[in-house]
Design a protein around this nucleic acid. Structure first.
Lengths: 349, 349
DNA sequence: ATGAAAGCGCTAACAC
DNA sequence: GTGTTAGCGCTTTCAT
């Protein structure tokens, strides 16, 4: 009989069906060697009692939770939202639930969340760190030996798989696009904090410039004091010694570039070209629509999950580094340098 | 002694400290009546063993999980991301963890997720339904009597609290803005599926028009066949019998409106004015920047959580309906009707 | 083919 | 103050 207040337990089902809890448990797990008569009675009992297995209690007994943890720096951005979205589906396909948590761009919080995942005894943790694979959260994962992988703001690690996009390659493509259009003075727009990825983008651009377009002048400004600082610095560059092209290294920067162009009446792409890292829907609808490096969010999620699964099933996992390729989406915001102004001035050869 | 493979349990700590598990449990819960000497030894043992309480095991014993479930239709939108983000903080402040899941705009999946929350025996569930408080998920919550509240795409319910924005009021404000600028022919842009909220926005606009601006012509087109259908229909309206103002009833619609204006060389706001429901960062940076109804995301989250908490602590909870006010953000996309063209034609009085 | 028993890690009476 | 005991809901040998 079902006891008073609470919900039906496996024992309630068992006694109602006239079998033992063990048999019900077997039934629930698809064991085939149960007498058909009993199967039938168990089914009836389950229906009558509205019985549902408590997965957490089952996990407790099994000493392993069917949960994958996912820690993101920020849930308000479409990028991480999409990542979470996809991982959730992948996890469920494998019988896990995904536990999503946001560190709100705080390393301290990230640490707390890693610890919570560990307390929860999750099967594995996918960490998209605030800073890098050397940040507080990642380091704690190593300390306590949690199973997991690192994604997005990471390079490579001695013990964990890392999954990221090929920042350098994408930026090289941007460089080539500008170079082909005759641009010889490009401004890179970055932010101080999100260092690693942005640094790779800068270097990727610079290296390619040195290789294929040595007479290209490449300036970079970094908003060390946040986005408003960047806005101010950009304003100065636009007012004097204006470049013919801007490569924004993060989405908000693209936003800022566009609005500063407008504020000054600088026409894009006639006066200046623009490409941004990280594509977004709205970039199709601005005037001009803006060219952007699109990150392969789904592939990132797929790879991260796949590597995690392999790792969970491996005896002695090796640390791998995985880079996904980005796609350069060309829209109206770029054009050839109109006259020889900059090209002529800089062409020394 | 700590046993072989696994992690230290409360018993390991107890025996190492020379006390019983019960005492350690008390210590962990801040019971003050423990002999200082024992407190000290427990602390030492915890440190030496790196002991951490398993919250799920504790919850099991307590027969109540310290988890709040949050089900969103979609994690890739900033709106729900922000909602989740805020709820996560609120939940943790009260000692819960928030379990976030996305129904991916599918009612079937929503149903599954509600059932999972129930299986998990969460303390409460915040549901942002795909359709409404009468959708699959919500109905199941009622059936099984889960504690929770409904948020965003909801009106009112007999048994659950509902928290939403005042669509009608916001739309009335939009109507007044247009009316004051002399607009007498406005086009409303909606989508078939997201019916309830959109309907309220339409009615809110229409009612206000009837009240304060009876000579205003209000047309509405609904993309029954998805966004591309809407785009096509909008195109037709713009080509013949063009209105002087457009009120888009959802964010994607604003996007579409803007791009269709551009495609046709229709100048905004000179030729046509635009206001969109649901504000976004990118609307500041388009040309023109677009006026929008901004939804109070944080307030929504705060109210939803507060009502849930009250409900969890109430003996016989009553169902309340909560509406938050939106803010109309005016930007460049609206202006007065230039000449008497439409005004003159329609003014019958 | 099934059930008894032990126990996952923890808490809560209730004795002492 | 502290330990004993009895579970929370489930799984898993190991007999039978």
């Amino acid at each position: 009989m079902k006891k008073g207040g609470g919900r039906a337990s496996i024992h309630d089902v068992a006694s109602r069906a006239g079998v033992s809890a063990a048999t019900v448990s077997k039934f629930l797990h698809g064991v085939q060697t149960i007498k058909p008569a009993n199967v039938a009675r168990i089914k009836v009992a389950i229906n009558e009692l509205d019985y549902r297995l408590d997965p957490l209690a089952a996990d407790l007994r099994r000493s392993r939770r069917n949960i994958i943890g996912f820690i993101v720096p920020d849930l308000e951005s479409e990028f991480f939202g999409a990542l979470a979205s996809r991982l959730e589906i992948l996890a469920e396909e494998q019988g896990y639930s995904l536990s999503i948590a946001s560190s709100h761009e705080s390393e301290e919080r990230e640490l707390k969340l890693v610890e919570r995942m560990n307390d929860w005894r999750v099967a594995g943790t996918i960490l998209a760190p605030v800073r890098s694979e050397r940040g507080l959260g990642a380091e704690r994962m190593k300390e306590v030996g949690m199973d997991g992988v690192f994604v997005d703001r990471v390079q490579s690690d001695a013990r964990y798989d890392t999954i990221g996009v090929d920042n350098a390659r994408a930026s090289a493509a941007v460089c080539r696009a500008f170079c082909d259009l005759g641009h010889r003075h490009v401004l890179l727009l970055g932010l101080g904090e999100v260092s690693r990825n942005v640094r790779l983008r800068i270097n990727g651009f610079r290296d390619e410039a040195a290789r294929i377009c040595p007479d290209m002048r490449v300036d970079a400004i970094m908003g060390d004091g946040g986005v408003e600082d960047l806005r101010a610095k950009l304003g100065k560059c636009l007012d004097s010694g204006r470049p013919t092209a801007v490569y924004s290294l993060f989405q908000k920067g693209t936003h800022i570039a566009l609005s500063e162009f407008r504020r000054r009446g600088i026409r894009c792409p006639e006066d200046i070209s623009l490409i941004g890292f990280d594509d977004a829907d709205w970039m199709q609808v601005t005037y001009p629509s803006v060219s952007a490096v699109a990150q392969p969010v789904e592939k990132l999620a797929d790879s991260a999950f796949e590597l995690l699964m392999e790792r969970l099933n491996a005896d002695k996992p090796v640390a791998r580094m995985h880079l996904e390729d980005c796609r350069l989406v060309l829209r109206e915001s770029i054009s050839a340098v109109p006259d020889g102004r900059d090209v002529g001035k800089e062409k020394a050869t």
